[in-house]
Design a protein around this nucleic acid. Structure first.
Lengths: 234, 234
DNA sequence: TCAAAAGTGTTACAAATACACCCATGT
DNA sequence: ACATGGGTGTATTTGTAACACTTTTGA
């Protein structure tokens, strides 16, 4: 029988709500993850994702942004909800659900001092140590999401510097998909969408000849989306 | 400065955690949504999704299953997390985050008495009334998810009876995508995946001649998935 | 016998793949 | 002058899209 007064609410259980950030970067041809040593009991000192409890007067996604800014100094970063981790036994400290959110950051932009101060470290994705609670699962889930999503949405660009070369872009996709791509076909395809603006500069850091720099053309991308077409790679 | 004792937890805020179900069905060529009249204040009597608070000793997804079973009598239904609705001001009653979960049910299987007892009704998707709180947004989000997901994963079958005809399947996809498909190409494509088992029976409810019934072949589908191929329609 | 939906094949076009050589430059 | 990565074009295959008629059967 349903209770039909406003008091219905106060009979219910309250619980802690946290959010954890799965922060991806890309450097030297490899996908990286930002993790740090947990500073609170239980499990103090263990490797962990960056997270925080959500405050009573704070939107869930605001909380995630707050954490990300606290630790990297960055704002306006690509971040998206992954899923909720809501098992009763996931945190031995207390009943606490966590909303996983994954972020893609340009690895050269973050505030190195700030990151260091928090004891955070960029780890190669294939060398992630054991993390507390269900955080390894979160990383796996986020990676799966990143892989699927990168196929039909140009989120990869969030991981590159604003100016990047086509070979860099290809390396990134190879790192995400974990297979090699044909350079000619790759170039042909990404350019076919008309969402890259070729610059006059070259990047000479990885070859004598140098490779032209491009930047992502968000305006054209929005047009592409509206016209019903999808950015789709491999 | 981080607090480094277990007492860290008790300084944090607790809040209500709810889950709301976006329940889709398919009948007479149309997508349907199961909604009902809210039974608690505030907003008692308004149209609403089916939801519940998550109990302290209950996993979040268990809570969603509990609700679904309570109202439809069904178990083992396709259900998947949509996203978290976590704005501070989303519920005027109290700070309460809700995890939206969408479910796909075979509309002929549900327990009609049970549904009626709860005051629930199947609405055509294009005739949904105003719902409480952010529930209309949830419906839109779930619909978007269903549309995207149906393209590369055979979730549509969850909405059909176990035995279905190809024309029925086509109607379903037409309802999901909201455009017409060529019957020959559609048939060719779905059959090309070898995930449909043709039965000896015919369904004569929609034509004199009758159409052969098929059922979904989950074993072959798993093989297809493992081989790296994707079920992809339209 | 006719109305109404089920079922079937082929052709044209577009997109994806496979593949090999020349270019530019710093050392 | 050579080693290194950057850049280009074409042919083949594969998949997608367009399209019209015959079949079955109950009323």
């Amino acid at each position: 029988m349903a209770v039909e007064t406003k008091d219905f609410y106060v009979q219910q259980d309250k619980m802690y709500v946290a959010t954890d950030c799965i922060i991806f970067g890309f450097d030297a041809g490899k996908l990286k993850l930002l993790i740090f040593k947990r500073r609170v009991e239980p499990l103090m000192g263990e490797w962990s994702l960056i997270g925080s409890f959500v405050k009573i007067d704070e939107d869930v996604d605001e909380a995630a942004k707050r954490i990300l800014t606290e630790i990297t100094g960055l704002e306006n970063v690509f971040m998206e909800e992954l899923k909720t981790y809501g098992a009763t036994n996931r945190d031995p400290g207390a009943r606490c659900i966590s909303i996983g959110q994954y972020a893609l950051i340009r690895i050269e932009d973050y505030d190195k001092e700030l990151v260091e101060k928090h004891g955070a470290i960029w780890y190669d994705l294939d060398e992630i140590p054991n993390l507390v609670l269900d955080h390894n699962q979160m990383v796996q889930d986020a990676l799966g999401r990143l892989r699927r999503k990168a196929r039909y949405q140009p989120i990869g660009f969030e991981l590159l510097p604003e100016k990047f070369t086509i070979p860099q872009l290809q390396q990134l996709y190879e790192a995400i998909y974990q297979n090699e791509l044909d350079a000619r076909n790759f170039r042909k395809k990404v350019l076919s969408y008309n969402v890259l603006i070729k610059l006059d500069e070259k990047d000479k850091s990885s070859s004598r000849r140098g490779a032209f720099l491009y930047k992502f053309d968000d305006i054209n991308y929005q047009k592409l989306r509206k016209s019903g077409y999808n950015f789709e790679i491999s």
